[in-house]
């Protein structure tokens, strides 16, 4: 029974792999590029959106960044070397674009790391699209206090449940370092929430 389940999983993975290869081939061909791109957008837009949103918090910034990510893909797909999966490639672009956006904010306002968390807190406080309850808001405020890398790792692991191996490819960091980042992030969030309870 267990081996049958394994076989089904492997079969699904190979079908997905086949589909992805076909999708990449179509993205690189002039005749099918537009249709294939529509499929790519529809397939990954939600996952990418939430990944970006958790880094920059604000909906409008997320919308801009998500569009920039897809424009980059549209322009550079011919150069995609297929060393990694499309999912990994897209997430890597999305992560880099989000971090660049925060860097720009930092340069623009000549602010330090602490002030970036202030900027994100303001974004969260003024976000009309935040639907969470008090506990969720406290958790988000705790996450905002984390250093950039720990914040991304925590979100990817806790909310998106991405495997460390996949995360390692996206963030180009070793699995060990990612585990350590997650461990420290959890400790800091615990401390932050304890302080809040007092």
């Amino acid at each position: 029974m267990e081996s049958e389940k394994q076989n089904i999983i492997q079969l699904r993975a190979s079908i997905m792999d086949l589909n992805e290869k076909e999708l990449i081939a179509n993205l690189k061909s002039d005749g099918n590029k537009e249709k294939a791109f529509q499929v790519l957008v529809k397939t990954y837009q939600e996952r990418l959106y939430w990944h970006i949103r958790k880094i920059v918090m604000n909906h409008d910034d997320t919308d801009d960044i998500l569009q920039n990510v897809y424009i980059k893909v549209w322009k550079n797909v011919d150069g995609f070397r297929e060393d990694s999966s499309l999912f990994t490639w897209l997430f890597r672009i999305a992560t880099n674009e989000s971090l660049s956006h925060l860097q720009k904010q930092r340069r623009h306002s000549i602010v330090s790391m602490n002030e970036i968390s202030d900027y994100l807190t303001d974004s969260l406080e003024s976000d009309v699209y935040f639907d969470g309850d008090e506990i969720q808001k406290k958790l988000q405020l705790a996450i905002i206090q984390l250093p950039e890398k720990q914040r991304i790792v925590f979100n990817m692991k806790y909310f998106d449940e991405i495997k460390y191996e996949e995360m390692s490819e996206i963030l180009q960091t070793s699995v060990g370092a990612l585990k350590a980042s997650f461990h420290f992030a959890v400790k800091k969030i615990e401390e932050f929430l304890k302080e809040e309870r007092k």
Binding site: R53, D127, F130
Partner: peptide
């Protein structure tokens, strides 16, 4: 620690955002 938390997204998006995203893009 987070046992009481709903693990889903605390954020939402404007209405029909994902439906219209591809066209805007």
């Amino acid at each position: 620690w987070f046992g009481n938390l709903k693990k889903g997204q605390p954020f939402r998006v404007p209405e029909s955002y994902f439906e219209t995203f591809a066209d805007r893009l």
